[in-house]
Design a protein around this nucleic acid. Structure first.
Lengths: 187, 187
DNA sequence: CACGATGATGTCACTCGATGACATCAGGGC
DNA sequence: GCCCTGATGTCATCGAGTGACATCATCGTG
């Protein structure tokens, strides 16, 4: 076969991120993205469900790995400890390219629709985690609480990780954040 | 003045909810809502920013009352206890008409865009609470964690409250949920 | 090599959400 | 009666998103 060329999906992803950075999300039209990627707008929608999704389609892989990580935790582990183990894995998946993450986050934070989409991706992860926890015998409410709490820790830690001044690993920040939450909530 | 008649905003709210229930959110067109309310589509958008917002415009009042409740808590209270006090107020505002809440929630849960919007409303509340907590001297991370944790408790409790089988007060459920969270997270 | 299947893309037409510009109309104060 | 103001209607337009259909390249098979 010919030498490797990025597929249309990858080109669209790149084109979208750069355009969102240059002009902002709302000022970028799907036709612009498609044009930069060398395809038509119709093709954009064959690769991504909508204009926002182009920034979020890594989420399904994150979810898959997170669930695998949870399944790898031995059964008798307390719910929140199991979630902590998941967060270590999440840190590896999401905590790689910090500069890319900063760019992406800058775009997302600048637009309400994108913030909405980001939230629902994390909620979807939380729901999936809770469901697995229940299968392990964790109570209904406890499963939801543990999963959602884990997501809260991730969100707070992540938002700190992409801060300009911050230099620590995402994993370290997550651990510290979880520990602070325990102090906060413990009686 | 003439006898009381509901304004266009109220008529639109009612029309929208009933239509969303009858046909579903996506199957309902803005023109339908406007028609049932006796106005034009253009007028709909003069009352609500978009098609979703018609279900959520109570959120700003909820936020206002929540912040007032937080300000009413004496300063030396631990962050999570202060949030607990806020949740009592939230329970009063959101825990009134259970049947209405069930209808509304049924519509929201049936559509991804609406779920997104609901999430961001609660996140906005969380952000506002965290900001006030910081003003009281609560540390940066702790403020975010306490506020977001409070929202998690509310979400979990609320979703239980609108369950068909559930009969307890929203406030009671919230209290129990918070207590469970403390057990879960405490070391 | 020709052929037909398959998958990715382009083209066209259309619906609907959302917004700006301008006209209209009713009520209140002068 | 007149004017101001706020709420609404009308019209035009943009852009997201989708369905239907045509096209084209690739590839396995006879």
């Amino acid at each position: 076969m010919a030498r490797w060329e990025p597929g249309a999906g990858d080109r669209l992803r790149e084109a979208a991120l750069s355009l969102y950075l240059e002009r902002g999300f709302e000022q970028t039209m799907v036709a612009d993205i498609a044009g930069r990627a060398g395809v038509t707008a119709r093709t954009f929608f064959r690769h991504f469900a909508d204009k926002r999704e182009v920034l979020f389609d890594g989420a399904s892989e994150l979810e898959k790995k997170s669930l695998a990580a949870l399944d790898a935790v031995p059964a008798p582990t307390p719910a929140l400890d199991a979630v902590a183990a998941v967060l270590d894995t999440v840190a590896q998946v999401a905590g790689g390219d910090r500069e890319l993450a900063r760019k992406r986050q800058a775009v997302i934070m600048a637009n309400a629709d994108l913030r909405e989409r980001e939230l629902i991706k994390l909620t979807s992860l939380s729901t999936a985690l809770a469901e697995r926890l229940r299968r392990r015998g964790v109570g209904d409410i406890e499963a939801s609480l543990a999963a959602e709490t884990g997501i809260v820790v991730f969100r707070v830690a992540f938002s700190r990780w992409v801060t300009a001044a911050e230099v620590r690993d995402l994993r370290d920040i997550i651990r510290e954040t979880l520990s602070r939450l325990r102090n906060l909530a413990g009686r």
